[in-house]
Simulated scan of single mutants.
Amino acid sequence: MELGINGKTALVLSAGGGIGRAVAVALAREGVQLCLADINRDALDDTVRQVQKVGGIALPYEFDLASSDQVSEAISEILSKVGAVDILFNNTGGPPPGPAHGHTREVWEKAFGAMVLPVIGITDRLLPKMREKGWGRVITSTSSGVVAPIPNLGLSNTTRVSLVGWSKTLAKDVARDGVTVNILVPGRIGTARTRFLDNAKADRERRDISAVEEESAASIPVGRYGRPEEYADVAAFLASERASYITGSTLRVDGGLIPAL
């Protein structure tokens, strides 16, 4: 299927590995020119090399999403170089595991400052050009916890679900300008973050990591963790011309894991 995005420009956040890297490569295969952001320069450079292997072009930008000054400076530089970003893939790291109670105000502010405010701020910076051109895609990657809260991930469940409300509201605001705004919900995708959470659960329950992974895979109807590339293919479709009538939606890529309707 021709996705109709050859020659478009995308910004992929947290592109240094896992889901972000896979999305960058998937978009590059469709002829999208890429701006890639991550806090880890070595990881970012690795993604640039992966993009180049499939014939893509990528400009790396190293900055910390939790630093408003770094974010503002980087977005200004990106806009000065590429003029406008057509596709924004919002993707952040996750906060540490733990309950939804007992945290200090500073811990909550740090979580929102790293995972919510930069997503909103970057989107606000890029939207005017999208609306002016009459075409744009804003895709925000969250977690299955926004549909069915995940035990011991209180900070993640709380921060990420706020992005769902924001995305749904924004979608209506810009729909007539040719800009779609959607949420992608991953299930158990085989990334370093998933491995970290499995390890944390194994340590907490004093179990072997392999037993935790086997139990987790068995709870997924398809019987395995998803591959980052499978998630990235859905992101590429949402970014495409073919998905122009999908907006304000929350789309699951979870192998049937989430039990809620």
Rank of each mutant, 00 (worst) to 15 (best):
E109K: 04
K110Y: 09
G102Q: 00
K129H: 11
T247L: 00
Q70H: 05
A260W: 04
L257V: 03
L170K: 06
P99E: 13
F237V: 01
G154C: 03
R105D: 13
V212S: 02
P95F: 13
Q33P: 07
R188H: 14
E109C: 02
I220G: 07
G190M: 07
E215V: 03
R41L: 10
A239D: 06
G154T: 07
S67V: 11
N90G: 09
G256A: 02
S244V: 11
E229V: 10
F196N: 03
D203A: 05
T142S: 01
R204Q: 09
R224Q: 03
R206Q: 08
S244G: 13
Q50L: 01
S210G: 00
A202C: 02
D177W: 12
R176G: 11
V212P: 02
F63M: 09
S80T: 13
A74L: 14
V116I: 14
Q50S: 05
N182T: 00
I139H: 07
D45G: 12
T191C: 07
E241R: 10
Y231D: 11
Y245F: 14
K168D: 12
P149W: 12
K53N: 14
P228W: 06
V23D: 03
L170D: 12
A260H: 06
S167R: 07
D69C: 01
V82D: 02
V179Q: 01
E106D: 12
V146I: 14
P97T: 08
F89I: 11
R195W: 10
A192T: 13
D203F: 02
A37N: 13
A218D: 10
N182D: 00
P60A: 01
G56E: 12
L153G: 09
D69K: 04
S68K: 07
A74G: 12
G16N: 04
T169L: 15
V12N: 09
R105Q: 11
L27M: 03
R224H: 07
F196S: 04
S210I: 06
R193F: 08
T180K: 00
I246L: 05
D173T: 04
A74T: 15
S14I: 00
L184A: 02
R21L: 06
F237A: 00
